[in-house]
Design a protein around this nucleic acid. Structure first.
Lengths: 149, 149
DNA sequence: TCAACAGGTCCCTTTAAGAAACTAATTTGT
DNA sequence: ACAAATTAGTTTCTTAAAGGGACCTGTTGA
């Protein structure tokens, strides 16, 4: 990558505008883990209620989470991932791998993912969906298209 | 994923503590793009000098960027990625894909990556490094190990 | 000598975050 | 019947961080 395309049309900019602060991605991670209710999220994350409720409203508005009722009288909701939200799984997985590789302390407990298919600890690799070869910074070039074709 | 491991040992938490705010990842992205100097970064990103210099110091301290001299008299440096920094490429790539899939406006210019190997537009896929099968939320389980084995 | 450039720092105002108390509807315990 | 507990927030207040813009330093070149 050796070109610098305009900052404002970069999809990374747009993504970070939405979920690029400390809590949104952690909330999404927790919903992946199965933590779906306001109170559980608040305790598990240690985030203030004010910030949590703000983020949840935003994530629902943006279609990343949806509210699903789980009881009537009083009506209560839990938060589930939409397809748009589930699609963030690769982002979390690559962060997890990076954190484990570069930030894990020796002699500390260590969180990893086990692949149920093969039983091994997951070390995800990124491959091109067309040729299935691994992707590296040197093997790609940024381009701008008009998306009208 | 249906267990909720402790928040504080999660590698995603640690990663976001380091680079989980608006600017750090955008700076790293720009360095990938080849924008390496203070002024260029400041203009390309539209970030204040104060925030930029704070982030750069932090990223250098953490070993994600390194300062490389490119002239003497006066001595001037540019910022380059270390291996630790280059290893964030998959995080940026997955964000880019998500942004393109979910946040791109129709009729707007569109930024994507072309794979120099096969000439196609990159749509990255995540595969298990052991069995090379695609990874999905349902196919993995979070586990804690003591990393002493 | 003075402008230009790189790479910042300092000060001030606005914005966001966190902590704790307060609402509100309903159920449970005594 | 009445107090207390759940669940999911909102409101208020205080503190921390971000953003903008002026200012500073060291050097080359007109």
């Amino acid at each position: 990558m050796e070109t610098a395309p305009p900052h404002d049309i970069c999809p990374i900019t747009r993504t970070l505008d939405l979920i690029g602060e400390r809590w949104s991605l952690l909330i999404i991670r927790d919903v992946f883990y199965g933590v779906r209710r306001f109170d559980a999220l608040q305790h598990h994350l240690g985030v203030s209620k004010k910030v949590l409720s703000g983020r949840l409203v935003r994530l629902v508005q943006e279609g990343i989470l949806k509210k699903v009722p789980y009881q009537q009288k009083p009506e209560r909701f839990e938060y589930r991932l939409t397809q748009k939200g589930r699609d963030l799984f690769p982002v979390l997985l690559t962060m997890m791998r990076w954190g484990n590789r570069w930030l894990a302390e020796k002699n500390e407990p260590h969180l990893h993912l086990k692949h149920l298919g093969c039983g091994e600890v997951v070390e995800s690799n990124l491959v091109c969906s067309h040729c299935e070869k691994p992707l590296s910074p040197a093997s790609v070039r940024a381009e701008i298209s008009n998306s009208s074709g």
